[in-house]
């Protein structure tokens, strides 16, 4: 059972309060009709599935109900950071430096 820091509540809480919500920073295209079938497939289905640091979304479903983003190492399952939806991708090199 993971411990997860909600950036809105600023509290670290157990996993059952949260729901995983897939890879982060996949923006819905502004005008999907302009996309080719390949581009639309990429948006719908293609995922990084990173082994190592992974940008992903969680929702504090049984708390403030907000969606937020996280960087988590999928090998150790350790969170490197969590941050609010809409914020830019944190710099991975800096995060990894911070872990050391």
């Amino acid at each position: 059972m993971l411990l997860i820091h909600c950036p809105y509540c600023d509290e670290t809480l157990p996993e059952p309060e949260f729901a995983y919500a897939g890879e982060a920073h996949i923006d819905r295209p502004a005008d999907p009709q302009q996309l080719s079938d390949e581009e639309w497939r990429d948006f719908l289905f293609i995922r990084t599935n990173a082994k190592g640091p992974h940008y992903e979304r969680w929702r504090h479903i049984n708390g403030c109900a907000r969606f937020f983003n996280a960087v988590r190492d999928t090998v150790s399952d350790k969170f490197l950071t969590t941050y609010k939806a809409g914020e830019a991708r944190p710099d991975l090199a800096k995060l990894l430096e911070g872990q050391k």
Binding site: A19, R28, R57, R59, F67, A85
Partner: peptide, 13 residues
């Protein structure tokens, strides 16, 4: 509701 919240919070804030 989850889907609506997802779009509202993250795509169309």
């Amino acid at each position: 509701l989850n889907m609506m919240e997802d779009y509202l919070q993250t795509e169309w804030p």
